[in-house]
């Protein structure tokens, strides 16, 4: 099962990003191997439709759970359609490492 956590940077010590479509990086965590991979968000500065494009990217990666701070209305609808679980964390002082330790 793959989980995506939105991140501000590409390291485990980076802070969690509260934005979904315009997050800096995506940390993909494979719950079977425990390995993490960072992917840069190409849609970060897109004019529009960042959320939609990001959802498409999530589907491509085969993600089943997304952890972020907020989801736009379009992203929500699409993630729902693709059966991807959305998790909203309000605390933006957590690092990626903190979150991974929590969900293990």
């Amino acid at each position: 099962m793959k989980t995506v956590i939105t991140a501000t940077g590409n390291e485990l010590s980076s802070l969690f990003d509260k934005r979904f479509g315009r997050a800096g990086w995506f940390c993909v965590l494979d719950s079977e191997t425990g390995k993490t991979q960072f992917h840069k968000n190409e849609n970060k500065d897109a004019q529009g439709g960042a959320g939609t494009k990001t959802v498409e990217y999530m589907v491509e990666l085969g993600v089943t759970k997304v952890i972020s701070g907020d989801f736009g209305p379009k992203a929500k609808d699409l993630l729902d359609k693709f059966n991807i679980q959305m998790v909203i964390i309000q605390d933006d002082e957590l690092s990626i490492d903190d979150i991974i330790r929590k969900i293990k």
């Binding site: 759970k65 059966n83 679980q85 998790v87 909203i88 964390i89 929590k102």
Partner: peptide
């Protein structure tokens, strides 16, 4: 317990908090 908000997609079987 941890005040996280989340959705449970229809295909999910477990009904517990994804964080804690």
């Amino acid at each position: 317990e941890c005040f996280v908000r989340f959705t449970i997609p229809p295909r999910h079987r477990h009904r517990h908090c994804p964080m804690c």
